[in-house]
Design a protein around this nucleic acid. Structure first.
Lengths: 334, 334
DNA sequence: CGCCCCATCTGCAACGATGTATGCCAACAG
DNA sequence: CTGTTGGCATACATCGTTGCAGATGGGGCG
């Protein structure tokens, strides 16, 4: 049987409520009384029952975080940052893996899961804005990334368009003219893939280079997806002198496949990615990529969510802060 | 205000307890009554309050998972697996990052955090068995890995010794005789590092190759640690024709540094790691390593913990299942 | 000297669910 | 016609905590 406030109260010779007051740092307690209570707590090894506290107070001090899968480095690193920021603000994080499936995402938005958290950080991949709004309950919700964009939802934005343009411009500056894009469908304009593709196109246009749909190869945003895509591209005979992987994982998969096929990187083909995961720095050759401001995203998202949770007037205007990005030039595309 | 069972009961025209019975699939309920309740639930959008349920039932259906940091791929991948297994068994996972600090680890073992979980999965890095036993409360606890070994504690074992020996034997079979070990101190015999080092020594002895302490380089178990270590080793002038990184991250860091320094891998120096993280397969050259049976570890650990939690007689004998390992030969050490 | 104030402490009710004990009624046996 | 059985539903107490509304009692002030 666990030790309760009642036990502490009995040992300290005060009322249960006084114990509660000590624990919650109520102002008007005689120092001697306070000490007696603290001693009793120590003696009995009392631990506040957070479940009971939550029930009574209506707050769980937990944030939900829904993402596709922790085995994907970008999400893992982001989750790590988010947990640290949340921890510093007195919140824990309950992670839910959606596996990129609409049903899971919907379940995470609605389900009982929500009753365990005060608010939700959500990286949507499968649902669109309408579905999210329809499924979301009344608790605070902050979206991450830019897969979904909608003026009605709080979210932290990544500068997909501008950052992708910056990468492309860098590749063009290196003299590349046939830049393959791996990870999008020709014609995509929404979602992270579409927005990054648009940035790529804009940079090409700026430089007066013609856009060739044959250079756009769709694939899963994973290492093996990138490898497959490059294999297909090479087999198809389309010429290219650079690869822009729409995230680092697939850029690294592409890089791997290029090397396997005997291409020299960056001499014959330059490679660039997006995300700046830790691994990018240690790839061989190291990967040129763009850092979307992960730490800042984590910081802003948690802060925004906690402000919503703790605000007395949650009806404030929708907020959509934007994280700063930074190009990281490395060996794969100097 | 949230919808409660009371509201549902009022709308359905039954007692609160009947609603509870419907939700918990109590056997003897007239189908018509049940339907009325379910309709009311639907109409009101009722969600069971898990906090209240936990308080009353004393179970939270959450498992704690304490690890160093999610940004380390091995932990992230393991966490992902654990969450999937736990989810399938009806449990959620609350992750806590210890940052490899003793105080954090201790706090995670004791703190209020424990009141939120039914049991704990713990990957100890900083605490030893005594400290763990002293700090652990009464709730079920299962350790992962082999940093700590003790007959009094439930844990899932990794075959550090045998797996490390297998890697070493493989390198020896490839004709290497000067195999540097990165990530341990000469003389370590405990913890993952020590056990793997012992396996390395045993394999050398089996092959009749002399052990040279100068080849053992300590470093942090991260990419940059491995890179630093190799830099130091090269600068020191010690000759070596292979590197055994005691985990993949540092093996990849080492690989990176070798390539930067112009060494040909595997022609001049072979490289092998330990963990088989996803990244190993896509490194260039791809990394030879040993898979410690991550999926099996996750499976066994969760199962063991849940059995302890749900068992009526938790005093059963200490269990220490061992996961099977597998050597994965790739380009870096063919 | 009496009254009010305020620091300090207390008791009760409630958060939303579940376990236990029990009530009620129909059907059936004796 | 009474007693028993068993399906079905209910009331009440309870989990451990916090919010609210007092209760207490010593000191300052008129």
């Amino acid at each position: 049987m666990a030790v309760t406030m009642n036990d502490v109260a009995r040992v300290a010779g005060v009322s249960l409520k006084t114990v509660s007051n000590v624990i919650n740092n109520y102002e008007f307690i005689r120092p001697t009384t306070k000490q007696r209570v603290l001693d009793a707590i120590d003696e009995l090894g009392y631990e506040t029952n957070l479940t009971a506290r939550s029930l009574r107070s209506g707050k769980t001090s937990m944030l939900g975080l829904v993402l596709a899968d922790l085995s994907i480095p970008y999400y893992a690193e982001l989750a790590s940052d988010i947990m640290k920021v949340a921890w510093a603000r007195g919140y824990r994080v309950l992670v839910e893996q959606s596996g990129n499936e609409p049903d899971h995402e919907k379940a995470a938005l609605q389900g009982q899961f929500r009753t365990l958290t005060d608010g939700l950080l959500f990286i949507p991949l499968a649902l669109d804005a309408e579905q999210i709004i329809a499924a979301a309950g009344k608790k605070p919700l902050v979206l991450l990334g830019e897969y979904v964009q909608d003026p009605r939802l709080d979210m932290v934005l990544i500068q997909n368009h501008r950052a992708a343009a910056a990468v492309t411009t860098h590749l063009l500056a290196g003299g590349r003219r046939r830049i393959a894009v791996v990870g999008a469908h020709d014609g995509d304009t929404t979602g992270s893939g579409g927005l990054r593709l648009e940035g790529y196109k804009a940079a090409l246009a700026d430089a007066g280079v013609e856009y060739d749909p044959a250079l756009v190869v769709p694939c899963d945003w994973r290492r093996d997806g990138g490898a497959d895509a490059i294999a297909r591209l090479l087999d198809s005979g389309v010429e290219f002198d650079a690869v822009f992987g729409l995230n680092d994982a697939l850029a690294l998969g592409a890089l791997h496949e290029l090397l396997v096929r005997g291409k020299k990187v960056p001499q014959q083909v330059a490679v660039a990615g997006f995300d700046d995961i830790d691994e990018a720095r240690f790839a061989s050759p190291s990967l040129t990529t763009v850092a979307p401001g992960r730490a800042e995203i984590a910081e802003r998202a948690v802060e925004l969510l906690i402000n919503r949770i703790e605000s007395k007037t949650p009806a404030a205007k929708v907020q959509q802060p934007e994280a700063a990005f930074e190009l990281r030039v490395r060996q794969s595309a100097p």
